[in-house]
Nucleic acid binder design. Structure first.
Length: 416
RNA sequence: GGAGGGAUGGCCGAGCGGUCAAUGGCAGCAGACUGUAAAUCUGCCGACUUAUGUCUACGAAGGUUCGAAUCCUUCUCCCUCCA
C-alpha cells in the first residue's frame, strides 16, 4: 500500500471510495500542499436524492472535513439534456419549472452534511444553468467544440454501448459529455476547482473535463471515481419494496431509513460503515469482527449513525428506540407509522382487510386479503386468521391498534 | 423516399382465433428455518366487500367473428437493410 500524505486522499482510500483516479499521487501532493476545491455534480431528475447519491455526499463531507472546499453542483442546465451514461434509452425531458423545484428540494439534503459559507473550506452550491443557459451556439462550438474529436467521443463507454446495442443516441445526449467537461473548466475558472469526483460511470465524462481544462486553460485538473456500490448479493443498492431509499424525510420517514440500514446484509456491514458513517476506522474494525448474531450490534450502529448523519440525533434516537421496542420486546414503538381512524367507524366495526389497507400495509384491498390469507398479517401481535374478521373498538390497547405485515412492517391505527 | 421486422403485465420473454388475467425467468410480498442477515424450500404476485362473479389489460383507433393478445384496415413509435 502506498502512503498518502494528505488527509483527504488517505481518508478516501482507506474508507473505500477510490475506484479510479487520473493521477492519485499528483492529487495527493496537491492536497497536502494546500486547500483544493473539488466538485461533484448532481442531476435534478427527482425532487430528492437517494442512497445511491449518498456516497457522493459523504465524499463532499470528507473533503470539507479534511480541510478542503467542496462544491455541490446542481445540474440545472445538464438535466435539460439527460446524461446517456449507463442508460439504454433516452430519458424523458423535464420542463424548467420541474427542474427548478427539484433543485430547491435537493439542496436541503446537503445541509446536515456540509457547512456552507464564504470561508476557505466552506461548501459552495452551484448550478450549471448559471453558465450553460446563456451559451451561444457558434462561439461555444468554436471555443470548446473544437477541442473534442468525434473519434474520441465515439470511444466513450456511454456512447459505445448505445451504438453496440443499436440503441439510438440522439445528438442532444451526445453533447452531454461536452457540457460536463465545460462545467469543470468553468468551475475551475470561477472557484479554482481542480478536482471532480463521481461514480465509476462518470469516468468518461470526467476525463473529458480534465482534458478540456488542459487544452483551454492549461489547468491541471484531477478526476476521481468511486466504485459502483452494490450489496454483497450483487444488487444495486437502494431499492426495496417501498421503492428507492430517499434522503428526504418527506419521501421516506427516518424510521424507515433506519430500518433500511438495519437490514443490511452481513457481508456489507464493514464496507457500509466505512462509506456511510464517520466512525473512526479503528471502531469500524472492531465492529467488523463481530460474527453470527452479534453482527446485529454492528448493524444497529450502522443504522443509527447513518440516520443520525442525515436526519439528526433526535430522529435517529427515536428510530432506534422504536425499532428496539418493536423488535426486541414485541411492543409498540412510538415512532411507527400511524394512521388515524374515526372512532365512529371503528365502533361500527371494520373488516380486517380494510384496516390493513387503510394503515398503508397493503396497496389495495386485494393485497390486504392476500396478506391475511398468506398468514402474514397480525393484529396486536395476534395472527389474523380470517380476512373478514371485524375489528371494533375492543381491539384498541393503550390507545392504539398495532398492525403488522410480516415481521418487519408495522403500523399503528389510532382512533380519533 | 423504398423494402422488411417489431411493440405483451415492474423488467425480460412465450403465446399467433376459443380451454388466456395470458407459459417461463427475474424482481417483489408472505410463510418455514434464522440473527429484523444470507442461502434454501413453500405459497402469493391486475383491480373489485371474494364472487364457481364483475371489470380493466397484450402500442392507439376502428373492423371481421358467436368469440381476437392472436385475423384485417388505419395511425403512432422503434429497429434493420437499401437510397
Amino acid at each position: 500500500m502506498t502512503h498518502h500524505r494528505s488527509d483527504l486522499i488517505r481518508t478516501l482510500v482507506e474508507r473505500g471510495f477510490l475506484h479510479q483516479c487520473t493521477d492519485l499521487d499528483g492529487l495527493d501532493r496537491k492536497a497536502s500542499e494546500g486547500v483544493i476545491t473539488a466538485y461533484i455534480g448532481f442531476d435534478a431528475t427527482a425532487n430528492s436524492l437517494h442512497v445511491g447519491n449518498l456516497v457522493m455526499i459523504m465524499m463532499l463531507h470528507w473533503i470539507q472535513k479534511t480541510g478542503h472546499r467542496p462544491i455541490a453542483l446542481m445540474g440545472g442546465g445538464t438535466t435539460k439534456i439527460g446524461d446517456p451514461s449507463g442508460k439504454d434509452e433516452t430519458r424523458n425531458l423535464l420542463d424548467d419549472a420541474t427542474i427548478a423545484a427539484n433543485i430547491a428540494s435537493i439542496q436541503e439534503i446537503f445541509r446536515p452534511f456540509l457547512r456552507f459559507g464564504d470561508g476557505p473550506s466552506d461548501a459552495i452550491l452551484a448550478n450549471n444553468a448559471t453558465w450553460l443557459d446563456s451559451l451561444q451556439y457558434i462561439p461555444f462550438l468554436r471555443d470548446v467544440g473544437r477541442h473534442f474529436t468525434i473519434n474520441r467521443m465515439l470511444t466513450m463507454d456511454s456512447v459505445k454501448l448505445r451504438l453496440e446495442r443499436e440503441q439510438p443516441l440522439t445528438f442532444l445526449e451526445f453533447n452531454y459529455m461536452i457540457l460536463q467537461g465545460y462545467d469543470f473548466v468553468e468551475l475551475n475558472k470561477r472557484y479554482n476547482c481542480t478536482l471532480q469526483l463521481g461514480g465509476s460511470d462518470q469516468w468518461g465524462n470526467i476525463i473529458q473535463g480534465v482534458d478540456l481544462g488542459r487544452r483551454v486553460a492549461n489547468a491541471e485538473l484531477f478526476g476521481f471515481t468511486t466504485p459502483l456500490i452494490t450489496t454483497a448479493s450483487g444488487a444495486k443498492m437502494g431499492k426495496t419494496a417501498a421503492g428507492a431509499i430517499w434522503l428526504r424525510a418527506d419521501r421516506l420517514a427516518p424510521y424507515d431509513y433506519y430500518q433500511f440500514w438495519r437490514n443490511t446484509e452481513d457481508g456489507d456491514v464493514g464496507r457500509f460503515l466505512k462509506l456511510f458513517t464517520t466512525l473512526p476506522l479503528a471502531e469500524i474494525a472492531r465492529l467488523e469482527k463481530l460474527q453470527g448474531a452479534e453482527i446485529n450490534d454492528a448493524k444497529k450502529v450502522l443504522a443509527f449513525e447513518a440516520t443520525r448523519l442525515l436526519h439528526g440525533d433526535a430522529a435517529a434516537t427515536a428510530a432506534a428506540e422504536t425499532a428496539r421496542t418493536t423488535f426486541e420486546q414485541g411492543g409498540i414503538g412510538e415512532d411507527l407509522p400511524a394512521v388515524t381512524l374515526p372512532a365512529a367507524e371503528l365502533a361500527a366495526g371494520i373488516p380486517a382487510w380494510s384496516l390493513f389497507q387503510k394503515a398503508g400495509l397493503a396497496a389495495s384491498n386485494s393485497e390486504a386479503r392476500k396478506l391475511i390469507r398468506g398468514g402474514g398479517a397480525r393484529l396486536n401481535d395476534q395472527k389474523v386468521e380470517d380476512e373478514n374478521q371485524v375489528v371494533t373498538g375492543d381491539a384498541v390497547t393503550g390507545g392504539v391498534i398495532k398492525l403488522s405485515a410480516g415481521k418487519k412492517r408495522h403500523a399503528l391505527v389510532k382512533p380519533a
